[in-house]
């Protein structure tokens, strides 16, 4: 059964230096509050996995938490670059960052293989492109039935998986609706998991018997953090803060403005700072 913890305790217990950590949420439900807590606790040498590193990994990498990034699209969506990731890759600031780069299809398949307890994923992909030349983890297999050559990538089996969900009930069962990305797969593929939620309720109010529900016994820790995915969003709670994503371009472009922002908004704050966003998009 999932344990209900506060965010600082959950990160302290579940996330260790050197861990392989996946924090998913495909644009929707990105677990920003948990990322900020990891930054505050100064975790180091993490291998960070996300299809779209987004601002959450821009912040964590800029604050020196990671030594490796596994990803498939590393920009600020619709805006431009993730400047802190670029600074780490191009100038090794604040520390060198190894990268392992895939396509979205390969990473989605790799998460699914992890959840399915398989050693690798296969796909009809990476045809005629250069990524397999620079990523030795992308290999090939021949179909034993047809002889077709297919691409393979290793399954993703993180030490820790962290996602944000809409709500949990009092037993710790967790509900996801809307754009569900790879979150179910990440939770089922990871050794340890933290799920932050908007609220805890008596009744999950799933809108369909096919809503994505993670049973309590598949989840390590449940943490209530209202607004915890801002500037990403939570379906039915608040909208994506697109103006924040646009503004981040300027904040993150230079090291000093970035560090000042992190000091003011992350290092000297706690998870309760997210509450102000919890009903921001409800109107």
């Amino acid at each position: 059964m999932a344990k209900f913890l506060d965010l600082a305790s959950a990160v302290e217990e579940m996330v260790h230096d050197g861990d392989v950590l996946a924090m998913e949420g495909f644009t929707h439900l990105i677990p920003f509050a948990a990322g900020h807590e990891i930054i505050r606790q100064k975790r180091r040498d993490l291998t960070l996995i996300r299809m779209t590193p987004d601002l959450i990994y821009d912040q964590m990498i800029g604050m020196g938490c990671a030594s490796k990034l596994i990803f498939s699209w590393g920009g600020n969506p619709g805006v431009g670059s993730t400047h802190r990731i670029r600074d780490a890759v191009e100038n090794q600031w604040p520390r060198p960052l190894a990268i392992e780069e895939h396509s979205h299809a390969a990473m989605a398949n790799a998460y699914e293989a992890g959840a399915a307890n398989l050693p690798f994923a296969m796909l009809r992909g990476y045809i005629g492109v250069d990524l397999p030349k620079v990523n030795p983890q992308i290999r090939k297999i021949t179909c034993p039935y047809t002889g077709e050559e297919l691409a393979t990538v290793p399954a993703i089996r993180p030490d820790v998986g962290i996602v944000h969900a809409l709500r949990a009930d009092r037993e710790g069962n967790v509900l996801l609706e809307g754009i569900t990305g790879c979150q179910k797969e990440v939770v089922l593929a990871s050794k340890r998991t933290i799920v932050t939620v908007e609220e805890v309720v008596d009744d999950l109010r799933a809108s369909s018997p096919n809503s994505v529900i993670l049973p309590s016994w598949t989840v390590g820790a449940v943490v209530v953090v209202p607004g915890g995915s801002h500037p990403s969003y939570a379906h039915g709670y608040y909208k994506r803060d697109n103006s924040f994503y646009i503004a981040w371009d300027k904040v993150s472009r230079e090291r000093d403005t970035f560090l000042a922002w992190m000091e003011e908004n992350v290092m000297s704050k706690g998870p309760d700072a997210f509450a102000v966003h919890a009903n921001g998009g409800a109107a």
């Binding site: 779209t52 498939s72 699209w73 920009g75 990731i85 670029r86 396509s103 979205h104 299809a105 492109v129």
Partner: peptide
């Protein structure tokens, strides 16, 4: 210059 990468495009 490091650009964002492929995302869904290769497939």
């Amino acid at each position: 210059v490091r650009l964002p990468g492929g995302g869904g495009a290769p497939e």
